[in-house]
């Protein structure tokens, strides 16, 4: 379980996080959605002990992250935004280093490495050098590495950034599978469909503040079910309808060109913050 209370963080006179309060339950998949610079990565860096806490409190399964205790770091696994694998070393060597850093005994470590490589469908890549892996395989390896010491909380910072749609879907399936095994997952993303597909609950983050926290369905239902995009001079106007019939009637009543689509989280984000996520 993750508990954040009145969390503030300032970098060189810029307030990156403003009074963030949040609770994530055990086994929940929670997504932080916001544009670049909203404070998503800062939150993860604080929770994983990579950045100092400004003020407030943050607890992982009851362990205070503020003092960077060994126990708080044992609770979590981290998949950062950028690839941070040793490219010159093999898949097995990368995982072994992680296991040693988390003080795992050799028999336990090796068994877990085999188990996880099968889990992420990389069992045949054990001796492959990381520099010879594709982007998608590197991401899967990073997820396997983060799970190696069996953390109860997994932090995924933009886990599919830079990957093509097919690989992204594979990573999503893997994330869902991890959640089904009882791991709490804290995910940051600026991909709308990622948050919609994966998250049990979503927090909209804008300029370091949480705007709203709710389920994706509830956030989208605030807007209606159908959206009509209408290009009006230089601006895009979007109208929202609860049923498709109403939307079609609106199209019929106007001679302009409309695009009819289902409401998504971007609409909710736009309505609450006045800006787009991506």
């Amino acid at each position: 379980m993750i508990r954040i209370q009145n969390l503030n963080k300032t970098y060189k006179n810029v307030q990156a996080l403003k009074n963030v309060n949040l609770e994530v339950s055990k086994g929940e998949l929670f997504a932080f959605l916001g544009p670049n610079g909203a404070g998503k990565t800062t939150t993860i860096r604080i929770l994983t002990g990579l950045a100092k806490l400004g003020s407030g409190a943050a607890l992982l399964n009851g362990f205070d992250v503020g003092n960077r205790s060994v126990e708080s770091r044992r609770q979590c696994g981290l998949v950062p935004q950028s690839i941070n694998l040793d490219r010159e070393l093999s898949v097995f060597e990368n995982l072994t280093i992680h296991g040693k850093l988390f003080r795992m005994d050799k028999p336990e470590r090796n068994a877990r490495i085999d188990e996880l490589l099968d889990y992420v469908e990389m069992g045949d890549r054990k001796e492959t050098l990381v520099k010879n892996l594709s982007g998608g395989l590197k991401r899967r390896l990073m997820i396997a590495r983060a799970l190696l010491h069996s953390p109860s909380i997994l932090f995924l910072d933009e886990p599919t950034v830079g990957l093509d749609a097919a690989i992204r879907r594979k990573i999503w399936a893997l994330i869902k599978k991890i959640q089904q095994h009882g791991t709490t997952i804290f995910l940051t993303t600026h991909y709308i469909e990622e948050a919609e597909f994966l998250a049990d609950r979503v927090a909209f983050l804008d300029k370091g503040s949480i705007v709203v926290v709710d389920t994706p369905e509830a956030l989208m239902n605030r807007m209606g079910t159908w959206a009509l995009d209408h290009l009006k001079e230089d601006d895009m106007e979007t109208l929202y309808f609860n049923d498709r019939k109403e939307a079609n009637e609106h199209i019929a009543a106007h001679k302009d060109s409309f695009t009819l689509r289902r409401v998504n989280l971007e609409d909710a984000f736009l309505s609450l913050t006045g800006k787009k996520v991506s």
Binding site: G49, C76, N84, H98, L101
Partner: peptide
């Protein structure tokens, strides 16, 4: 190199080291 190019420093800092 590990810190600025490969970001490995973070991997070590996130561990109980």
């Amino acid at each position: 190199i590990a810190r600025f190019y490969w970001n490995i420093f973070e991997e070590i800092q996130a561990a109980p080291v």
